[in-house]
Design a binder for these strands. Structure first.
Lengths: 94, 94
DNA sequence: AATTTTGGTTTATTTTATAAACTACTTTAT
DNA sequence: ATAAAGTAGTTTATAAAATAAACCAAAATT
């Protein structure tokens, strides 16, 4: 029987964000936007969801005079990501 | 930059169905239902979508007096599945 | 012969993803 | 100095998807 895939991670954009965050550890909003090719609005919404789930931590500061949003994956986020990947393997192994 | 994930395959249920079909080559509706733990309605809808995309072939016959729906992955389906897995690797490789 | 079960389909509802519009401020050009 | 354009986002509206609920037709069971 196939395992459940965490719906919060089974979304192209959120998975992309998490995929980046798991390797870089912290990333700025604009960097995520570039890398994922998504619109700012979409990123904003998905970051909120990941944050509310406790998968990432969002910090709002300023770079000079401009707002700066920085994201960092949490322990829970790493765990969830790894569990998701493990479950996913079931689906894609030959 | 992250690659696109075929939205038709990036769905838990459709991916599960394709994952089964790629290994067994043909499967009955009820078998898919059991293995995926999904409702009949949901399976019915998702099979139609996969079929319309040409990823699977659906055959309707009878087993004795009862209707029997049999599914088989197509060449295009195999190709799409493999492309999806390749793209996905980008997201989940450490 | 009524009730339940099987094998589905269709329709309705909820959830999700995405895009469009907007806010607040900064930088650049006039 | 001020209007126009750009940056960094958020909020709201719309479209698309997933899922569940309701339904149908025939078969099997009590």
């Amino acid at each position: 029987m196939l395992r459940e895939l965490d719906p919060l991670l089974h979304s192209q954009l959120r998975l992309g964000i998490m995929s980046i965050l798991i390797s870089v550890e912290t990333a700025e909003f604009t960097y995520l936007k570039e890398q994922t090719n998504a619109t700012a609005g979409n990123i904003s919404v998905q970051l909120d969801k990941l944050s509310e789930a406790g998968y990432i931590k969002i910090e709002k500061t300023f770079k000079g005079k401009k707002p700066l949003t920085t994201c960092k994956i949490t322990k829970a986020g790493i765990k969830a990501f790894e569990a998701y990947v493990a479950a996913l393997q079931q689906y894609i192994k030959k």
